[in-house]
Amino acid sequence: MEALRTKAKELLAQGEVQVVIGYEAGTAGVRRPCFVRTAESAIRLVWDTNCIGNLAGYLTRPEIKRFGKPAIVANNAVLRSLLQLVAERQLQQDAVLALAVAQDGVVTELPTAQAVEDYLAISPGGLSAADREKMEHLAQLSREERWTFWQRELERCIKCYACRSSCPMCYCGHCTMDCNRPQWVSVPSHALGNLEYHTVRAMHLAGRCVQCGECGRACPVGIPIHLLTCYAEESVHRQFGQQAGTRAKLDYALGAFRPDDKESFIR
């Protein structure tokens, strides 16, 4: 943690970056986002195993972009998001300085997308063991049981959109959900509205979800909604052999044509 604070202080003092996006101590042991803009306040930064949130969503927020060049304290989820944001041309190759922190506290500066790719090649990370287990459990259920599971879960949804707001890949300025000409998706949080919202979101994240689990963590009512987007992502991975958040140059699998695409969906 000291190494991180020293590095942040240095970067800010030398003007190499104008803001360090990191974690600070929050309520009752929680780690929450913070935005350090002066060398003196680098002391706010913390790093430990509770720093699980994905901070990458802030990289595309106007309030944060305004500050200037950012460094970001990066767990693997942040790194994967970074690559995917570059692939989707939301960030320049070298617009962000990623500060990857290892378990022993050693800080590695990753100034370019290439450096991030290389770093991730060694330790890719991904779904937590607990989430993997849940995914497998769901996969084993029958279609009807799975339907019941999701109906029951989605019934809880209050459409607060915390899942969308927290997702680093939900950066669209004008989301389909907010479009009312035509009204593609029903706004109220009744059964149909919730089902429509979450299917559309999962479909929009198929091939783009970096499997950070942030939407599920954000959900106030505890819906493991990330399992849906992760499932969509993994299904694209299986069928098209490419995975979001692994490379800085990546076509959108569902939007790009390749001569060797399987065309089994055309019957």
Binding site: G57, K159, C160, Y161, A162, S165, S166
Partner: peptide
């Protein structure tokens, strides 16, 4: 700054 502008706080 860190508020992500969702509706969770108001809805609960």
């Amino acid at each position: 700054l860190r508020c992500i502008g969702c509706g969770a706080c108001a809805f609960v």
